[in-house]
Design a protein around this nucleic acid. Structure first.
Length: 871
RNA sequence: GCCCAGGUGGUGGAAUGGUAGACACUGGGGACUUAAAAUCCCUUGCCAGUAAUGGCGUGCGGGUUCAAGUCCCGCCCUGGGUACCA
């Protein structure tokens, strides 16, 4: 064995010195894993599979941030652990590379986003390698790769044909000075109103033609599917609240003196008798029709002001209710009462029907509004004394709880739940009410007026030509049409063989001044001829083919990240999104690690697409992510969020240079629980550096030979052996539960103990190195090799805990008097209850505290505690 | 406001209802060294005491229990999310 050490079989000694030299060791092993494809997953290998997925990064020009390695270290360690345990592990990585910063860089420099992306990806990849993350790079994907976005486009095509996509005018932020549409995050809320982040120009809401996906049709399925997922409860609740399903009723009110009527959504039809006024939102289409002459100045002035407010401003002003009477009144369908219709911006056009019936006695907001404008408040639910009232018996706040109905005609006496049904039934007779379900969730705005995104595989044709198009290219149930350049056009899908529909080369990445995508200027690409039978396209006219123009919007960044986890399983398949056999073999991620900031949007969109693909028969199970874990955030040393402006950003490369990747990895995991938000502290890494040096010395003696203490005995001393096996047990359990901080503590205890032992066995030292390997793989591989092994430690398996070694002959029993510690003693492990209590009572300090008191009770928790209760 | 997470030494944190502070960092003292680095040893919650030991102590106030950081009730504070959802 020692000779092996002097002549390592496949590599020169990493270092000339005898000290732990991470700067020499780490690149060597990073190279080794790459050369030997150590962590490449083999399809259909006869082993249990484990698929671990990280949220893939956006390869920004700024490079890796200390936040990235936190979650990635956890997944890399878990992968190495699972492989050692005998699993066929899939742990891939890729790039979510469409995105705003790259596009803006292109606008500024004229450099094609493709080139910027390639540079950034190379940079990211190098940085990830430096940290020792050994991904299966043979499965690398990039959302901007046409071979990848071919299938993103294909999925959209299925959504379109299934009737889940439509086109609508939707308001978006538009900046006339910049001549471009802005994302929410590019808009600042300032005292002067909304302004662009770049240039600080005024921005406004402008309706623009957009693709929208009907995610609301999956609201029920998305809520129901959450039930069996192994996700943090808080994340499940967040999604549930975001979807916001509520059961209620739509009720229709006649408007006095007008042919129109007004439909509202309410969750409390039982309170209908208490409706004393109605409110419509300032954007409501009926507003102009019903507003009286006398009120028109006030109403339209109010509506105009509301329009210029951003959502945020509207919300901030919420403390004070504002509104104006429209001059119109409505008839309550249940009792014929005439009630005023107001307009107020606390009612939103985007939820329900954009109008409400106000029941001030039983709704907090309605109550405040009624107080502000001295409107009637009629209590119709008996509060049984639960509500706060003044001396005259008038409500001081809304009573929102349940109860029996009062002041409600024939419904009086019924309880809320019964009355809800009864009221709807009564209204249904005259078609004045129906039970409905409403979602907070809104349909998904799925297009961007930008260059750097997936083009839509859609062509627009005239109404006459649409009739000639093969039905398989259409959204048959719900044809999609809109006005383009003043003409009615219909959307048809291209043939699948046209995919991927690549981005055209353009002269400028700047949107056109009217807010249209840069693609709208790519004339040659834009205007095409379409074979109505097949959906094939041509840039030259062909007999029997029809004129068409391409969709100029592109898809949002979410599109590519909605399904990437499926593609890793079968990354190069050109004929299908995913091969069925491979899907069956690998399944979906067994563990998905990523930040909580994606708790709703990304995780909801991905689930939506997955459900649709399941309904289409493409996939075999409706839920993609069975188990989810959110890593926390690393704060700066000042305890604040890391940001350039605060100057508290920690650069991973600096740490690697000073301490090595293994130290950084261990320290990131040692800072605290993986899910916690925790501040960085550069000084603290010293403890980890010491731990690594001690681990090194366990194997390598000061003169560079192997530690002479190893193999000088057949058996470790009992205490060291017990701690070693306790460590195997604890570390194994902690890795399974992603409790890396406590696993590291235990390994520290173990190395401290083994360092003190006079004689060591080879087996003991090897077991320890195996435990260390997932978190500190470079040093572990090096030591493994130095100990004479020719294979990677990745192939070395996992140590088994020998439970018999954990058993101790004696146990420490704590003595308490009235629950307070008063001493302890080492007693035989199998000590009887009586003996333990006797031992306690004979203890000097126990006697002192019991003396002069009566013993009321004696409690013995086997092997742990004796508690004497004495008064 | 609502929803979520959290509050433990000088610091990061540990603790199936069973000795609160494991493991580290920092600080203090010492050994080795010409010196430094590295390494090793002791010490480090607060108060009283030379010590033995005693008292206090997990945001605050109650409660359950032989026993509470942990469970229950009511507050306070911090961080994150969200924005009047009828």
């Amino acid at each position: 064995m020692q000779t092996n050490l002097l002549n390592p079989p496949f590599s020169k000694m990493a270092t000339q010195t005898t000290d732990y030299d991470f700067s020499a060791i780490e690149p060597k092993w990073q190279d080794f894993w790459k050369q030997h494809a150590t962590y490449h997953a083999q399809d259909f290998e006869d082993k249990p599979t484990f698929y671990i997925l990280d949220m893939f990064p956006y390869p920004s020009g700024a490079g890796l941030h200390i936040g990235h390695p936190e979650g990635y270290t956890a997944s890399d360690a878990l992968k190495r652990y699972k492989k050692a345990k005998g699993y066929n592990v899939l742990h891939p990585m890729g790039w979510d590379a469409f995105g705003l910063p790259t596009e803006q860089y292109a606008i500024k420099t004229g450099k094609h986003p493709r080139e910027t992306t390639a540079t950034n990806v190379d940079n990211f990849k190098a940085q990830l390698s430096q940290l020792g993350f050994a991904y299966d790079w043979s499965r690398e994907i990039n959302t901007t790769d046409p071979g990848y976005y071919k299938w993103t486009q294909w999925i959209f095509m299925q959504l379109f044909k299934k009737g889940l996509a439509y086109v609508d005018e939707k308001p978006v932020w538009f900046c006339p000075d910049l001549g471009t549409v802005l994302a929410n995050e590019e808009v600042l809320n300032t005292a002067e109103g909304p302004r662009s982040e770049r240039g600080h120009f005024p921005v406004e809401r402008r309706p623009i033609r957009q693709w929208v996906l009907r995610i609301t049709e999956y609201g029920d399925k998305l809520i129901a599917g959450l039930k069996d997922l192994d996700w943090p409860d808080s994340t499940k609740r967040l999604q549930e609240n975001w979807i916001g399903r509520s059961e209620g009723a739509e009720i229709t009110f006649d408007i006095s003196g007008h042919a129109a009527d007004l439909t509202v959504f309410t969750t409390r039809p039982d309170t209908l008798f208490g409706a004393t006024y109605m409110v419509i939102s300032p954007e409501h289409p009926l507003l102009s029709q019903i507003t009286s002459k006398q009120q028109s100045t006030a109403v339209f002035g109010y509506a105009e002001k509301a329009k210029s407010k951003s959502d945020l401003e509207r919300a901030e002003l919420s403390k004070e209710k504002t509104g104006v009477w429209t001059g119109a009144t409505a008839i309550n369908p249940i009792n014929g009462q005439e009630i005023p219709i107001w307009v107020a911006d606390y009612v939103l056009m985007t939820y329900g029907t954009g109008a409400i019936m106000a029941v001030p006695a039983h709704d907090t907001r309605d109550f405040e509004f009624a107080k502000e404008f001295s409107l009637d408040i009629i209590q119709v639910i008996d509060d049984n004394g639960a509500a706060k009232k003044d001396n005259s018996g008038a409500l001081l706040e809304a009573y929102t709880g349940p109860g029996n109905l009062i002041n409600s005609g024939e419904q009086s006496g019924k309880d809320s739940e019964t009355a809800k049904k009864a009221v709807i039934e009564e209204l249904a007779i005259d078609q004045r009410g129906t039970a409905t379900i409403n979602f907070k969730l809104r349909d998904w705005l799925f297009s961007r007026q930008r260059y750097w995104g997936e083009p839509f595989p859609i062509a627009w044709v005239s109404e006459a030509d649409y009739a000639k198009v093969n039905n398989t290219l259409k959204s048959m149930e719900r044809p999609v049409s809109c006005q383009i350049d003043g003409e009615l056009r219909f959307a048809v899908a291209l043939t699948e063989s046209e995919l991927p529909l690549a981005l055209p080369e353009v002269e400028s990445y700047t949107p056109s001044p009217d807010g249209q995508s840069p693609l709208s200027k790519a004339d040659a690409w834009l205007h095409i001829y379409l074979d109505p039978a097949t959906g094939a396209t041509s840039s030259e006219p062909i007999e029997g083919w029809i004129n068409a123009s391409r969709e100029t919007n592109t898809m949002p960044q979410w599109a590519g990240s909605c399904w990437y986890y499926l593609r890793y399983v079968d990354p190069n398949n050109d004929t299908a999104l995913i091969d069925t056999e491979k899907e069956k073999y690998w399944g979906y991620p067994d563990l998905y690690i990523g930040g909580a900031e994606h708790a709703v949007l990304h995780l909801l969109y991905a689930r939506f697409w997955h459900h649709v693909l399941y309904d289409l028969g493409v996939l075999s199970d409706p839920e993609p992510f069975k188990k989810l874990f959110h890593q926390g955030i690393i704060l700066g040393e000042d305890g604040e969020k890391m940001s350039k402006s605060r100057g508290n950003v920690v650069n991973p490369e600096t740490i690697i240079k000073d301490y090595g990747a293994d130290a950084l990895r261990l320290y990131l995991m040692f800072l605290g629980p993986l899910e916690a938000m925790k501040p960085w502290n550069t000084k603290g890494i010293e403890g980890i550096a010491r731990f690594l040096r001690k681990s090194w010395r366990l194997v390598v003696a000061e003169d560079g030979s192997i530690n002479p203490k190893i193999s000088t005995t057949d058996q470790l001393d009992t205490e060291s052996d017990r701690i070693l096996h306790a460590t195997i047990k604890k570390v194994t359990e902690d890795y399974e539960a992603l409790g890396f901080n406590t696993a590291i503590s235990q390994m520290m205890i173990c190395v401290n103990q083994l360092g003190k032992a006079d004689a060591l066995t080879l087996e003991a030292v090897e077991s320890f190195i195996k435990l260390l390997a997932p978190l500190a793989p470079h040093i572990a591989e090096e030591l493994w090799q130095l100990m004479g092994h020719t294979c990677s430690i990745a192939e070395a398996g996992w140590p088994e805990c020998d439970k018999s070694k954990l058993v101790e002959d004696t146990i420490k029993v704590i003595f308490q008097v009235n629950g307070k510690y008063r001493g302890d003693a080492l007693l035989p492990a199998n000590v009887s209850k009586g003996d333990a209590i006797t031992a306690a009572k004979n203890h000097e300090r126990v006697t002192a505290h019991v003396d002069g008191k009566t013993i009321k009770r004696e409690i013995y928790v086997p092997g742990k505690i004796v508690n004497i209760v004495a008064i």
